[in-house]
């Protein structure tokens, strides 16, 4: 019963925060930032444990899986464009993954985080299940990695459009790649708001980032720990 209520409540808060966001068009009001804040306050307010909330929440999280499968559709529609620019996509994504892992490591060093937090931060820019797997592989804490992945998604969702504007990124492909690379599925959903070609590029970026990270992370990790 409580699971069912939690699902309904999450959907209601999501729909409401989406309405507010549509009206105000203010990046910090993104439903992915506002809705979890409201729900967390509610849970704490009425003393519901996260584990109880998640009995319902899990059903919604599970829908991420068919959603990822669903990215096959924009990819299929724009397969010719993606094929045409395969080389550029490969170069941009390899650079992106390299910078993602390296910069997470360097900035963690700068703010004096210990190694186990640092390692958990390295795979944060890719989709959750693979990020967690990489985290285990390189000696991080997968549950912390899952948190860093979601915070990265929120950050990228909010800052992505501002970066696109301030860097004068005009090409649709470039916009999509940076959103999918920087903020996995959350960025990809933002890219779909820009347009379907941006969405297709972001879907591809999300998938490639995950696969490239899987290969690169274990190789780069020893260098970062030096």
């Amino acid at each position: 019963m409580i699971a069912f209520i939690c699902i309904l409540l999450t959907i209601a808060v999501y729909v409401l925060s989406k309405c507010v966001y549509k009206r105000m068009r203010f990046a910090l009001l993104s439903p992915l930032l506002i809705a979890p804040c409201i729900l967390s306050l509610m849970l704490v307010g009425v003393h519901i444990d996260y584990s109880d909330y998640d009995k319902g929440g899990r059903w919604l999280s599970n829908l991420l899986q068919p959603a990822v499968v669903g990215f096959a559709v924009p990819l299929y529609k724009f397969r010719k464009v993606m094929k045409k620019y395969a080389k550029i996509i490969a170069i941009s994504m390899s650079t992106g993954v390299f910078i993602a892992i390296l910069s997470s490591g360097v900035f963690s060093h700068i703010v004096h985080l210990n190694d186990s937090y640092l390692l958990s931060l390295l795979p944060r820019s890719i989709t959750t299940p693979i990020a967690m797997a990489v985290s285990v592989d390189i000696g991080g804490m997968p549950t912390m990695t899952a948190i860093f992945v979601i915070v990265t998604g929120i950050t990228g969702l909010i800052l992505g459009p501002a970066i696109i504007r301030s860097m004068h990124i005009q090409e649709k492909l470039a916009k999509g790649l940076l959103l999918g690379m920087g903020a996995h599925g959350a960025g990809t959903s933002k890219a779909l708001e820009f347009g379907s070609e941006e969405g297709a590029a972001a879907s591809l970026a999300m998938v490639l980032a995950a696969i490239i990270t899987l290969v690169f992370a274990p190789i780069l990790t020893p260098l970062i720990l030096l």
């Binding site: 999450t10 959907i11 808060v13 999501y14 989406k18 993104s30 439903p31 992915l32 809705a35 979890p36 729900l39 967390s40 849970l43 704490v44 996260y50 909330y53 998640d54 929440g57 899990r58 919604l60 999280s61 599970n62 829908l63 991420l64 068919p66 959603a67 669903g70 990215f71 559709v73 924009p74 959750t128 549950t143 912390m144 899952a146 948190i147 979601i150 915070v151 998604g153 929120i154 969702l157 599925g185 959350a186 990809t188 959903s189 779909l192 969405g199």
Partner: peptide
């Protein structure tokens, strides 16, 4: 699914209160 994807991220974002 792809246009409502943010909804499916919300429970994992709420998970932060455990930490």
């Amino acid at each position: 699914l792809t246009s409502e994807m943010l909804l499916f991220f919300i429970p994992s974002a709420v998970a932060i209160i455990q930490y």
